[in-house]
Structures are given as C-alpha cells and as structure tokens.
Computed example of a mutant assay.
Amino acid sequence: MRDTRRARLVIGVLLAAALILITVDHRAANGTLLAPVRDVASSVFGSVEGATATVTGPITGFFKTISNAPGAERAITALRKENAQLKSDLDAQRLNRDRVVKLDRMLGLAGLGRYRIVPAQVVARRASPGFEDAVEIDIGTGDGVRTDMTVLSGEGLVGRVVHAGPSTSTVVLLTDPALAAGARMEGGNELGVVNGLGEAGGNDNLIKFRMLDSSSPVQVGRRIVSFGSQGSAPYVPGVPIGVIERVDTTPGELTRTAYARPFADFSSIDVVGVVTEAPKRDPRDSVLPPVPKPAVSRQAKPVERPRLLPAPRPVETSQAETRETDQTVEQPAAAAPGANARLRQSEPPRSGHEPREQTRLAPSPTPERAAPGQVGQAGDQRRQDRGA
C-alpha cells in the first residue's frame, strides 16, 4: 500500500471512529444500541481465539517443556534420593525393632538363669583357625570379654569365645564339628556330649548328642540343657540347647546317639550376649521355655442315625408240610373221641353278643409212621369218629 495522503486520511478516520465507539460504549449503560454489535464481535473473535489456542497450544507446551527440562530432571533426582533415604530409614527402624525384641528376650533368659551378660551384635561370619563355623561380634576385652566365655541368645546356647580382641571377639558356634559341650537331659541326670555336624547337619543345623550311658532312656521330644564346665568356663550350666528329634540305636556300642534341633537359629543370628559372670547356683531346668500344649482340634460329633431293622421275611411252607400239619391236627381228635363232648359240657353257654375267642392250636409232634397192616384200622377208626 502506497503512503499517500488519501490512505493517511482513511486510517485517521477509522482510528477516530474506533475511539468514538469505544468511548461511547464505555460510558453508555447496558442495553445500548452497541450491545448487540459487541456480542457479535466477541463471539466471532472468541471462536477465532479458541481455534488459535487449540493449534498453538501443543507447540507452546513443547517449548515450555524443553525450557523446564533441566529443572524437572533435578527435581526427579532429588525425589529419588529422598525416597531411597526413606526406605533406608524404614528398614533401619524395622531392624532396630527386631533387635530390641531379641535383646529383650535375651535379657529375660539371662534374668531367669541369673547370668550377667554383655550384649553384642554379630558383625561378620567368618572361619577361624581350627574352626569352620564362627562369627565376629562387636565387643572385646575393653567390654570385659575374655577367652572361653559362654555366648547365648534369647533362645539358647550359641557357642563360646575363642579369641578376644580389644574391640571385637571371635565366637565359634555350637554347630561347628570341632566344638564339644557337656549336656544333660531335662528332668534328670542323664549326661552326654553335644557336637556340631557342620554341613552334615543340613539346613536344620542339627547337632549330635551322645549319651555317656547306653542304658539311659532317650526319647524323641525331650530337651537338653548345658551341664556346665569346671569353673563355668567355657560353659555355664542350665542354658537351653535343643530338642531331640531322632535317636539312633546301634547294638554293641557303649553310647547312644541322638540328633537334636538347637533352640538358637544359627541361620539368622544377630544379637547375642557374652556371659561374664556365672550364677552361684545351677538353675537346672528353670531357663527352659514352657512346653507348648498340643493343639486340640474341635470336630463336630457325627449324628447317630437310628438303625432300621429289616422286615421279617414271610415263612414259606411247602405243600408237604401243610399236609403233615393237617394230619397232625386231625389225629388228636381221632385219638380222643369223647374229648369234644366233654369240652362242650364244661364251656358255659354263650350269648349271641359275646365275642368269640380264637384259640391257637399248638403244633404236635410229628406222628410216627404206622405199619402197613395198621393203615386200614386207622382209616376205619377215622370213619367211626366222623360218624359219631
């Protein structure tokens, strides 16, 4: 468009008209003549603006995402670190709760047996010279730990200290094959020796218990405790060891061998206690846990239904038996012809309204067979009786 005087005049007129219309519309009240024009213009331009926003919205969002990408990446990294820290804190709290429970149980066992202990935590599991199953704990001579001290947990005997350093100590476990400890049967004085089985014990970590007297009774389910050593080193008396699960009897041997499951869980051992002072008196069986009662299953008693007795079967009689019975009934009448007359005389007269009593005829013994010559006489006698 050329920059002429006419064009300038047209633009000036349009601008003046626009200013006038804006001023009139602003000062005028609602319902003026310009209201319909304003509504039409707003609807038209509003549709155009909506279509433009629909087209340009994704492009604007894309450029905004690109511009905010570095900040979003930093926020995601910070959230991931915070999430990992929260998980670590939660695991630590759960582990601390488990340790508190184990420590409380161990202090309860030590209180029952009157053992003075120093709590410790297992920090590593390693082999020691001469032993293959040992652990490292986080206390040493600075805490009063010495070599050949008993180590226990909240469940029972764990092992003994074989090396004590300034801040750490090595404990050989009860499952080690080189370890031997004196043991006693619960509720008696049957003595034996406990030895570990190592890898031969399997996942159950079974231990071997050999009775010194082959005649001593050994039963599955009986529990064993530590017998104690001289001077309570390396083992103090009365610490629970395990429950007998299997007994092997070999004829001719001087000892009997049993296999027991330890009370302590050696696969997840964590919190232990080193006994620094033994009790003055043997606690015997007071430290053993209570025997669990067998679960009694409550089953509904079956309803007893009355038994139906079978119906009596009808007695089938043959024709031959019927004929013999008829003959038997007729023969007594023939044998005593005057009996019927005497019976009629002894009976009182009956009226027509009295009920008649039915008498049952008892079966008589089977008559003996008559000789051939006597058949005719018997027939004549019957005819005479019938005529009479």
Rank of each mutant, 00 (worst) to 15 (best):
G352Y: 01
A334M: 11
G108V: 03
N340S: 00
G238E: 01
V243M: 11
H26M: 13
D326T: 10
E190N: 04
Q384S: 12
V151I: 14
D282H: 00
V275N: 00
D380F: 08
Y259P: 06
E321V: 13
A164T: 05
T257C: 05
D143F: 08
F266M: 11
R38A: 14
A35S: 15
I241T: 02
D89V: 09
R160D: 07
S216L: 10
S232C: 05
V220N: 05
R313G: 08
Y259V: 07
A134T: 06
P166N: 09
Y115V: 03
R223M: 07
E277V: 13
A16T: 15
D138H: 04
A183P: 00
A41C: 09
A92E: 04
A183W: 00
D98I: 13
V375N: 06
D91C: 07
Q377E: 07
L212K: 01
L90C: 06
E321S: 12
D98R: 08
R383N: 09
H163L: 12
G57D: 10
R261K: 15
G156D: 02
E304K: 11
A333D: 04
P251M: 00
R222M: 12
G71D: 13
L308H: 10
D270S: 15
S229P: 02
V122F: 08
S43A: 13
N205A: 15
E253F: 10
Q384R: 08
L254I: 12
T359S: 06
P312C: 06
A16F: 12
P372D: 08
P310C: 04
